[in-house]
Design a protein around this nucleic acid. Structure first.
Length: 420
RNA sequence: GUGGGCGUAGCUCAGCUGGUAGAGCACUCGGUUGUGGUCCGAGAUGUCGCGGGUUCGAGCCCCGUCGCUCACCCCA
């Protein structure tokens, strides 16, 4: 094989691509129903936007970005995440100058130069929302609910929701001092110590039992929340409970992006491998201002479409979502082909799905293709039909055929679809 | 970046202690005139990942290389 896809990219081809569409559309549905509007964004931005917005100290920025120089000598980076690009667009086009909160969603490919793994790709697909300009805890709860509704709408059941609060700047400052003092006394290897130096919270996320047991008694950020932060977090929990959304508070949860403050959350699926997070997000108090906007808070999430698809497959809830044609037309001969094409054109214009047999197959083989297409009805068009003006409309499941005049075919099909 | 596993037909894989390639599924066509799903038959498809070595002979052994994959790390 001469060419193959670049290492670690996810690509979707039939028949699985229909599952991808299904998952994406299901995730999107509640978001649209909640008044979020599309933000169609570039997949690359000035590198500085990410280094500044996401944070130099994060793994994402320090070693996972696809960065290159364009022909004008500008440093460009393929977006590793969606929030800062979305906020840049909101600021640049003044969307935050009208009624707040601004509520937008976006969807598409993201890029991280990581070692690929099950559920982790160098090009992956995410769907995100951002709600900017309100610090109402009800908004936190609504945003979380939208993700939950999306996953639930796909049919996923074996997932859980973890939430925590990172508090405000003062909360984190006080905690950091105590946490560093605690870590100082631990017997850790050098790389781990180095990670602690970059962000001590990371150690809470270490999967090695020897580390996690040491961290079990470490001071927890949740215990350091200011009164405001604590109050806010309690309200979020109350709203979630009111909606009947199950969640657990996970004080050990850590997110890899620097901009998160206050409420953060993560959806974890139990049937996936090491990469089990199917979505996550949180509030960001200083991010808008940090990248040149107003000093207003926002909250958002990113949902992994690739992973949601894997999860749906793992739960066995994904039937084929290929759109089968209503009618499969089989022309026999050149004259019939003209008529079939014309008919199919009219039928599609009427908004119905129709396929035409191609390649002058023997009728038997054309019927096999019709069967494979999953068509509900099949119709053979040969010389005798053209002459008489009558066709047999064959219902594939029962095998029964009814005679219809050629001119009434479209209206007959329309009637049949209305009945269902 | 660090480890483990694996590379044989489109897919899933078999291939005995080395004797120069197979199955199932899928696909195309056919089983007498223009009707699918079952059945039967026929056909096409591989530089056995690539390069080197050992050997009379390598899919099988050795070395290298590339790729895929899983995990660490990190996250969607």
């Amino acid at each position: 094989m001469k060419y193959q896809s670049p290492k670690g990219v996810s690509e979707y081809f039939p028949p699985r691509s229909s599952g991808f569409e299904f998952v994406r559309d299901k995730l999107l549905a509640p978001i649209k129903n909640a008044g979020y509007q599309l933000l169609e964004l570039p997949v690359f931005e000035d590198t500085e936007l990410f280094t500044r917005g996401v944070g130099e100290s994060t793994d994402v920025v320090s070693k996972e970005m696809y960065t290159f120089e364009d022909r004008g000598g500008r440093s460009i980076t393929l977006r590793p995440e969606g929030t800062v690009g979305a906020l840049r667009s909101i600021i640049e086009h003044g969307l935050d100058r009208s009624a707040l909160p601004v509520k937008v969603f976006y969807c598409g490919p993201f890029f991280r130069a990581e070692r690929p793994q099950a559920g982790r790709y160098r090009q992956f697909y995410s769907l995100g929302i951002e709600a900017v300009g309100s610090d109402d805890p009800a908004l936190d709860a609504e945003v979380i609910a939208l993700a939950y509704e999306g996953f639930y709408g796909i049919g996923l059941r074996k997932f859980r929701l973890d939430i925590t609060s990172l508090g405000d700047a003062d909360s984190r400052k006080a905690h950091r001092v105590d946490l560093l003092a605690y870590i100082e006394k631990l017997n850790l290897d050098d790389p781990t110590r180095a990670r602690a130096g970059i962000n001590p919270l990371r150690l809470f996320d270490d999967k090695r039992p020897e580390v996690s047991s040491l961290m079990a008694k470490a001071p927890r950020l949740l215990d350091y929340l200011s009164e405001d932060s604590s109050e806010h977090f309690k309200k979020v929990q109350g709203y979630l409970s009111a909606m009947g959304i199950p969640f657990s508070i996970n004080p050990l949860m850590v997110r890899g992006l620097d901009y998160y403050t206050g409420t953060t959350f993560e959806f974890v699926h139990e049937d996936l491998g090491a990469q089990s997070g199917i979505g996550g997000g949180g509030r960001y108090d200083g991010l808008m201002e940090n990248i040149g906007g107003q000093n207003i808070s926002g909250i958002g999430f990113g949902l992994g479409i690739d992973r949601a698809l894997l999860a749906a497959e793992a739960e066995g809830i994904l039937e084929s979502h290929h759109v089968s044609p209503l009618l499969y037309l089989i022309p026999l001969g050149e004259k019939a082909k003209n008529v079939a094409l014309k008919l199919s054109h009219q039928i599609r214009n009427a908004g119905l799905a129709v396929e035409v047999s191609m390649g002058d197959k023997a009728l038997k083989n054309a019927m096999k293709s019709a069967d494979k297409s999953g068509a509900i009805y099949t119709c053979v068009l040969g010389d005798s039909e053209l002459e008489s003006g009558n066709v047999e409309l064959k219902e594939m499941i029962s095998g029964n055929a009814t005679s219809v005049t050629l001119s009434a075919l479209l209206t007959t099909l329309q009637l049949k679809t209305v009945k269902k």
